[in-house]
């Protein structure tokens, strides 16, 4: 790891101010993507701003049809939240599949979303649930937020404060783990909203998390696994590595989508 200067602000405004002053800085949330990257010397920020002490970035609230989760809320807090379990049980079920128990004790929602790893789970949830990503500067619709692998709408120094999820009537996530890394080789989140179904896929796409319009249309007409028969995603838009080439990933998108719909309709 390269040397850096460490900052520990206690408020969003203080963090924003530090970010404005510091050259070559990165925020650290749970650190479970950033620290391994820094250990490998693939990242070496001169300044590291720790968001861990900012109380206002944590917490889970429900207001009407919206569930709001603070950006620095750790996965374990989502798992233990009766509010989340009641509002969007699929979010709890998905969170149980993120990383491993130790990772879930440290990793945060905001960190995952800000990083937009192409194999992370939460971007799929945000997209399928039509979430709004709230920052210290503005509100960004999930559709506008995720802009390709490791790329988001966030500006330099902009801090995610919370994420608002409209509560769907039915939802589920089906994940096929990468055998080695255990990230999503393919993860499909389906959510039925009053105005239609949204289907988001992570892990598979060469450009990061994406929605599948054809599946959404079919499921909006008939929210059943059979409605997906004959629908496939284009192989040339899929990722490929030694564990899964594009054809296999494209196939798994179909399988996981059907399994997610089955799970959602069973629930």
């Amino acid at each position: 790891m390269y040397a850096f200067e460490y900052h520990r602000p206690t408020s969003v405004s203080e963090a924003a101010k530090l970010a404005g002053q510091a050259d070559d800085m990165k925020f650290i949330a749970g650190g479970h993507t950033l620290l391994p990257t820094m250990k490998m010397r693939l990242a070496g920020p001169a300044n590291l701003i720790d968001l861990g002490q900012i109380a206002e970035l944590r917490g889970i609230t429900r207001s009407g049809d919206t569930l709001t989760i603070g950006a620095m809320t750790r996965y374990v807090e989502v798992l233990n939240s009766a509010e989340v379990r009641d509002a969007i049980p699929a979010l709890v079920e998905m969170t149980e599949l993120v990383g491993d128990p130790h990772v879930r004790h440290r990793g945060t929602i905001g960190g995952s979303i800000a990083n937009n790893d192409p194999s992370a789970d939460y971007p799929a949830a945000c997209l399928a649930l039509n979430a709004t990503i709230v920052t210290d500067r503005r509100k960004i619709a999930a559709d506008d937020f995720f802009q390709g692998i490791f790329t988001t709408a966030l500006d330099e120094g902009e801090i995610i404060t919370q994420v608002s999820f409209p509560i769907p009537s039915q939802a589920a996530y089906a994940k096929f783990r990468h055998p080695a890394s255990r990230y999503a080789l393919v993860g499909v989140f389906v959510a039925k909203h009053t105005d239609g179904v949204r289907v988001a896929v992570t892990g598979a796409g060469s450009n990061g998390v994406f929605r599948v319009a054809e599946m959404e249309d079919a499921l909006s007409r008939n929210f059943a696994a059979d409605a997906l028969n004959g629908i496939s995603v284009a192989e040339d838009e899929m990722n490929g590595d030694i564990h899964a080439d594009a054809a296999y990933r494209a196939h798994l998108v179909g399988v996981m989508a059907r399994r997610a719909v089955q799970a959602a309709t069973l629930g």
Binding site: S181, D241, I242
Partner: peptide
């Protein structure tokens, strides 16, 4: 396959 992320 030079890490546990790639070598299963």
């Amino acid at each position: 396959t030079a890490s546990f992320n790639d070598y299963c």
